[in-house]
Design a binder for these strands. Structure first.
Length: 271
DNA sequence: ACCGCTGTTCTCCG
DNA sequence: TCGGAGAACAGCGG
């Protein structure tokens, strides 16, 4: 489910569930989620207490006492859920932490695209894909750096912003949303960006993420389809529906094998 | 039955 | 060396 806002909500939940409790037992079946690690490695979390959870983009680093850590990436379908004592575990369980307060905290992941990696905190930080992450866009983006990075790539803005080394945490949804708010065409090349456009983009990314985050904080998680057949987003998954700003039908194109949504009038190719 | 999908990583090709 | 396409992973829903 997750791009940055969903992962941030997961981080806060997980922190509230784990803090102040001791892990009484940890178990994980052998799955892709553990990559090459043995289930025993995960089980070593027994006896640990969480100190805090660091988030960079869509990646979480759970830090336990004794310098022990756990990397959690939710992939497409990963989710942490809490369960009371004696409540049955749900399907697709890929890891369980039993806590001293009687709850169990489960990692569920039907499609196994997620990741649970155990190790010393400092060793986990060396993981290549973790190390390569660009800066997290929250609380704020360094506009000078973003402009410099985008100016040197001939890729489209859509593809560049999907690259976790450029900024960590944007995915297919929020790239479309942010480009719409910034009134930038997703097919524009990075090299074509004017500084004022980067500044708009910086604002737009922040607004998109904060807007999603506040929605998730208030109601239930974001509903992809709401009562009126509408969804929460300005453009994402709204092909052929009227732009919420100008009523022009939203277009869907494919970039890097993924759908991009944009308003051809608000986001013209050149302006 | 077929297609698409909120992510990441790899290969192939120009 | 870079960028783009496509595939793989695996399950669900339309």
């Amino acid at each position: 489910m997750p791009e940055l806002p969903e992962v941030e909500i997961a981080r806060r939940q997980l922190e509230s569930w784990l803090s102040g409790r001791r892990i009484v037992s940890a178990r994980a079946p052998k799955t892709r989620v553990l990559r090459s690690q043995r289930p025993q490695r995960f089980a070593e979390l027994k006896g640990r207490r969480l100190q805090e959870i660091e988030r960079v983009g869509k990646w979480m680093l759970l830090k336990f006492d004794g310098g022990e850590g756990l990397i959690s990436h939710l992939g497409m379908t990963g989710k942490w859920v809490r369960r009371g004592r004696d409540e049955p575990a749900t399907a697709y369980l890929r890891g369980t932490l039993e806590l001293s307060d009687g709850h169990a905290v489960d990692y569920r992941d039907p499609r196994l695209f997620g990741l649970l990696l155990r190790g010393k905190i400092e060793q986990l930080r060396q993981l290549p894909s973790f190390r390569a992450l660009g800066p997290d866009p929250l609380p704020g983006i360094d506009a000078d750096r973003l402009h410099a990075v985008l100016k040197t790539t001939r890729r489209s803005l859509k593809e560049a912003l999907m690259d976790q080394r450029v900024l960590a945490g944007l995915g297919n949804i929020y790239v479309s949303e942010a480009l719409h708010r910034a009134e930038l065409n997703p097919q524009r090349r990075g090299t074509s960006l004017k500084r004022a456009e980067t500044d708009r983009l910086v604002e737009a990314i922040g607004d998109s993420l904060r807007n999603a985050l506040s929605e998730e904080e208030s109601d239930e998680p974001i509903t992809y389809v709401e009562e009126g057949g509408e969804n929460f987003f300005l453009v994402y998954d709204r092909a052929e529906k009227p732009c919420k700003t100008c009523r022009t039908p939203i277009k869907r194109i494919v970039q890097g094998g993924r759908s991009t949504y944009f308003c051809p009038r608000c986001q013209p190719r050149r302006r």
